[in-house]
Design a binder for these strands. Sequence first.
DNA 1: ACCAGATAGTTGTATGATGAGTTTTCGGCG
DNA 2: CGCCGAAAACTCATCATACAACTATCTGGT
Lengths: 243, 243
Amino acid sequence: MAKSAKSNKTMAIELRDKLAEFIANGNFKAGDKLPTEAALTAKYGVSRTALREALKLLEQNGTIYVHHGKGRFVGGIAELKVERPITLFESVTALTRGNGYDPTNKVLSIAEQHAPEHIAAALKISADDRVLRLERIRMHRDDVLMYCVDYVPRHLITDKIYDVEWSGSLMDLLETYGHKATMSSATAAAVLLPDDVIAANNLEEFGPAFRIVETVYTAAGEPIVYAEDYHRGDAFEFSFVRS
Amino acid sequence: MAKSAKSNKTMAIELRDKLAEFIANGNFKAGDKLPTEAALTAKYGVSRTALREALKLLEQNGTIYVHHGKGRFVGGIAELKVERPITLFESVTALTRGNGYDPTNKVLSIAEQHAPEHIAAALKISADDRVLRLERIRMHRDDVLMYCVDYVPRHLITDKIYDVEWSGSLMDLLETYGHKATMSSATAAAVLLPDDVIAANNLEEFGPAFRIVETVYTAAGEPIVYAEDYHRGDAFEFSFVRS
DNA sequence: ACCAGATAGTTGTATGATGAGTTTTCGGCG
DNA sequence: CGCCGAAAACTCATCATACAACTATCTGGT
């Protein structure tokens, strides 16, 4: 199996994902026996080393379980897999598309200011540091799907704020400045939009919102965004497995 | 490194855990460089194969990240762990206590009926099979925290329904009948309580609800409960890590 | 028919070699 | 002396081979 061209992924990761797909698409149910290592190395054309590494990753995430000398078997949790769990870190654009919409962004405001105390703490900046506050709505045709407020430490964006295109993906933008978002710590709650937001933006029909407040980090643990995302209740549903 | 005596764990798993401990105890912070493969094989007295397998497991769970040719570094995700993530399978009682409340249950109704089609499908029962529908509210003093509807396949409860105490934990009850709940597949959304529920139970002040719909399974993958839980929006907040 | 040993099948572990990406060192040139 | 390119060293990625440990099945002896 040749690795994908230009892929940064290792063979083990690619193979893990291919095997996961094979299991998901192969009419397996919990407890079914998987092909042996020998059969799988032949099937995918890889070394036994890469295959074993991939299989151990699948074992760690519950997709399979192993009995030494007997073989490998499909784990029960595999049937509970959801395609895009709430725990998946992805851009708001991808999330919105995953819920079946074709989103466009509208920038309501972009401003440089001091951060409220709790936001400064989350972003690990001092009270003297400034943040950029980006306020946007995400729309599908004429319907407002999300109201979003993002706070970014000012020092991360080395250009003047009016020289920057703010309507695209904030994560992609930060990556061009050398800060690649990879994970976040989040909380979710059911709320109503703040009254002043409703009044300022004609959002009387928005209804209950699924609010996610998250701090976004690079792989090295550097906090780069504090986000408050209000997802319209009747437009979004979030999936996850509890175990 | 000798494996623990009588351990069923593979070398890779044991080493993963030892390395995780080394990282946690070693005054490392996110972004710090870890010792090379050569140094770690010498330190732990293991083959390079086992070490690489262990390191890949740590990479998958976010503890470390890798840059080909540069080395391995401590990941920031370890600092993001939350104590009771939304993905933790626990009883509603434990969840409610985790949010700081001392809940009492009030049974609104218990009835035997046919299951709606989507619920029969989720519980993997036929249209002829019957379910028990349990409707309850969870209260903290005089405040209603949750409105819950649970559906249980009738055949799981071998006693007459009026001989059963329904105000306790449903999961504990099912365990006494030999069906231990261990995991669930869930979706969450922000909604309003249905109008008839508000009217029937004087819940005009409930406000937006964080609704979790989940199918609960035993370890063998047998579905035993279909639950619709409406958590009062201003009383519950759910945490999770995205990666 | 039952039991013990041998064989075959399957996963677990180790070692050595080569390839690919990154950093450091060395030598030549202006 | 500083800069640049090439080579060497460092570090992770992949492959191949050999042997060990566990499980299932087969065979031969009683």
